[in-house]
Design a protein around this nucleic acid. Structure first.
Lengths: 140, 140
DNA sequence: GTCCATGCAAACCTTTTGCATAGTA
DNA sequence: TACTATGCAAAAGGTTTGCATGGAC
């Protein structure tokens, strides 16, 4: 896991390892909290800086699900995919669909665009929230 | 254009009229600048508050194209649509495609989701930027 | 030893909010 | 009059940055 050309420091390694170990779609604050379980002294600035680097070298993707903070997800060796987001409990499900991608390209071409990337998010209720009629209760 | 049940004030009318007159995908600051051409004294806070109201009563939609600020677009009587965004010159083209929407619903269903809304943005180069190899020059 | 990364705190930017004042119905 | 909207300026929330110090090679 050292194929990224970043200079290695204790904090960076910790941040990067934690990021890939935890997985999912982490906000900087969430990641920072995880990191501090191992080393209380790491500053948020370093987490921001490290994730920005990881994003720039393509190992992480920055996402914006509209809650006002940037979330990062691991990118290495993964297919492109999009997201289903439950507006009740926050669950995020990844999916990919080639037919949609094909149609997107066609639409773009029709408008004279060459698409380099895209973002598609479907918001709604996940199965559980439809059944229980709301987000999971914290008690019980 | 007074069918929205908002109390009418000089500032609100000006903001709302300007918003619909200018059209497009306006950031609060852009809208504020336009508004101040008519009335220098209007505060940003009022623009923020008005646009939030317009959004809540469904007359405007808040969008987030990743440049760190919320943009609003007129919603009244318009079909749902998605966006093509030129990463070079910032041009935004709207489009709609029923086949994609249908596939989105199918994907969601497969994952047990009921979709209430979605967001799809295609990023790339518009025809002009492909031709000229970059954003329009400011001179000439 | 050189140069880059880190920590800290201040700065930034967009958006929100408290409060006294002004305006609307 | 009663109640809401406005302006201002301060506060908030997320993110970035300047600078002196510490660590990697």
């Amino acid at each position: 896991m050292a194929q990224h050309g970043l200079k290695s420091t204790r904090q960076r390694s910790l941040i990067i390892d934690t990021f890939f170990a935890v997985g999912g779609h982490l906000s900087v604050e969430e990641l920072w909290n995880k990191v501090r379980e191992q080393d209380t002294k790491v500053s948020v600035a370093t987490v921001y800086r490290t994730m920005k680097l990881l994003n720039e070298c393509g190992l992480a993707h920055a996402r914006n699900f509209g809650d006002g903070q940037t979330r990062y997800e691991a990118a290495a060796g993964r297919e492109h995919h999009d997201h289903l987001i439950c507006t009740s409990c926050g669950t995020i499900v990844e999916f990919e669909n080639d037919r949609i991608e094909t149609l997107q390209d066609a639409v773009a071409r029709k408008h004279g665009f060459t698409v380099t990337s895209h973002k598609m998010e479907l918001y709604g209720l996940c199965r559980e929230c439809q059944i229980r009629g709301g987000p999971p209760t914290t008690e019980a």
